[in-house]
Design a protein around this nucleic acid. Structure first.
Lengths: 165, 165
DNA sequence: GGTGTTTGTCTGACGGAGCAACTATATGCC
DNA sequence: GGCATATAGTTGCTCCGTCAGACAAACACC
């Protein structure tokens, strides 16, 4: 007996995926204009929002859904481009911090207004205030269910919980 | 003057991204067990839901947010694995159809029940029926805004457009 | 019917990201 | 102090997807 291919739940999850994919595509177009990739943007954002404008490599990986080696390479590239730097961690010589530079902050400054406009235009502005509240509520429920660690805002003790079933 | 890094709109879009990323991670874990990648799963789904179990390469690309060359490679791999096949298009000799094979349908059969369970567990079941309706409404609004073409070839608007040969 | 343009697909070269292996440092236990 | 184990980060290898370009077929226009 075959599973019903037209189960409305497939439509639902498809809608979810397509909506975010569409948004990401819009964002990517603007990032391209600034010669920056979506991951690089995310790195800049995470660093800029962190106390001291820096984050340990591992923590950065945890916040970006990148592997630690992925973070190493991204930071390599951005270091070459002058957007971030590396700093030794005084208390643990195995660790190193990624720090956003002035140039990185400037780049973020250049990108953010346009990005915010796009967020407003294609996401926030598409919904009524009530709809938006409802939506954020639901999104938070799902996010917390699926990724309980993410609730930790900046530097929370990572539980090292890997969602492998 | 720098853009406010704590603008609630950033939180909102972040929530959106993290929620779907978490869901995709859950799905990926199950796909791994079946030795299939998310894109391959999507290809199987799209083909299985298409009339005649086949789709032109270009249309497949349009439905999967993959480039046409990306589709060529995915279909290459899946062809090698016996999950799909290629069929010449009688009316246009430039085109070729990707067709899902019996083995492909069987694979889908093996994956789908578990996948549906995950969709239920981490998405549908997290929300009340009312919340879900609201959410789908909002998602549809956004999807239609950012990706107006999707309505054309998409499954859920199957009544609106018959794929032109 | 010919000629130029467009369309559909495939291929080569390239870059990004993950896994596994490796190095170096830290920690626990005796 | 000395050894076993855990943790942080980097590197080699490989896969996957994109872009640009090549090629074939269809179409438009005369």
């Amino acid at each position: 007996m075959r599973t019903d291919l037209d189960d409305p739940r497939f439509t639902a999850i498809g809608l979810f995926s397509e909506a975010i994919a569409g948004l990401h595509a819009r964002f990517a177009a603007q990032f391209d204009q600034h010669r920056i990739s979506p991951v690089e943007f995310e790195v800049l954002m995470r660093l800029a929002r962190s106390p001291g404008n820096h984050l340990r490599m591992t923590d950065l990986a945890g916040q970006t859904s990148l592997s630690t080696s992925g973070v190493t390479r991204v930071v390599d590239r951005m270091d070459r481009d002058g957007l971030v730097g590396r700093q030794a961690c005084p208390s643990d010589r195995r660790s190193s911090y990624a720090v956003i530079t002035e140039a990185g902050l400037a780049k973020l400054d250049a990108v953010l207004p346009g990005h915010l406009e796009l967020v407003q235009q294609w996401f926030i502005g598409q919904l009524s205030p009530g709809q938006l509240d409802q939506m954020l509520d639901s999104l938070r429920t799902i996010r917390d269910a699926v990724n309980p660690c993410a609730t930790a805002g900046s530097d929370e003790a990572s539980e090292s919980v890997v969602p492998t079933a």
